[in-house]
């Protein structure tokens, strides 16, 4: 797996952060899974004075967190969250990492166990540009948001907004709020076609 901070290469991350900040309470306790170099937690710490912890597997990212003052636990998310107590965080975040998880159901279940609320963001595979690449060229989409070839991608579980809605429905997960953005602008019309980053605020129902 590549050691990139973000497995997609979105330029919309600030928007992404701002929306997440809107869903996180002031001074709350936040766990960021696959926290990269700790950028989101640093942002939330500065803007909302949260008590934040990150989980990161990669040595370089882990060290960057330590150096910028982010509490960081080195572990592999694929092993689950057994090191975290039930309902011990206000919010658990999985930012643009869901699509790279092998055990997708398990991690979502674990997040809902550990967090009172869960934020999941992922690149929407139903975005029209992805559809055009498949329909016109007959190739797997490669873009700035999904910069990998089919054979070297860490993104093993790409999904569309419709797919994720169905997933939440199947697993009885409540969607408190959903936002879809494209290039930093919120999309409300035909989001599964026009949105490239899906953001969900969830809780167990």
């Amino acid at each position: 797996m590549k050691n990139n901070v973000y497995i997609t290469n979105s330029t919309t991350y600030r928007q992404d952060f701002a929306i997440i900040a809107g869903w996180v309470g002031f001074g709350s306790k936040v766990l960021d899974l696959g926290c990269g170099d700790g950028e989101l937690l640093t942002y939330l710490r500065t803007s909302l004075e949260i008590k934040g912890y990150g989980v990161e597997k990669d040595d370089t990212n882990w060290l960057a967190c330590l150096q910028n003052g982010t509490n960081v636990i080195q572990m592999d998310l694929e092993d689950g969250l057994s090191g975290f107590e039930n309902q011990s965080f206000d919010t658990v975040v999985l930012s643009q990492t869901l699509q790279a998880m092998h055990n997708t159901e398990e991690i979502v279940k674990e997040m809902l166990r550990v967090g009172r609320e869960v934020i999941v963001t992922f690149p929407n595979f139903g975005y029209w540009r992805n559809r055009v690449q498949i329909a016109s060229g007959g190739h797997m989409p490669v873009s700035k948001d999904l910069p990998y070839q089919w054979y070297d991608t860490p993104n093993v579980h790409l999904c569309t907004i419709n797919d994720f809605d169905k997933f939440c429905n199947n697993y009885k997960i409540s969607v408190i709020e959903r936002k879809v953005i494209t290039d930093g602008i919120e999309v409300s019309f035909m989001p599964n076609l026009l949105g490239n980053l899906a953001m969900y605020r969830l809780k167990a129902s």
């Binding site: 306790k29 008590k51 912890y53 040595d59 882990w62 967190c65 330590l66 509490n71 960081v72 636990i73 080195q74 572990m75 090191g83 975290f84 107590e85 011990s88």
Partner: peptide
């Protein structure tokens, strides 16, 4: 990790490295 979990449960400031 058992130590780390107990520290997290107490909401203490902790970082944990698993060095290869």
């Amino acid at each position: 990790r058992e130590i780390v979990k107990a520290l997290l449960d107490n909401e203490l400031t902790v970082s944990y490295a698993e060095v290869t």
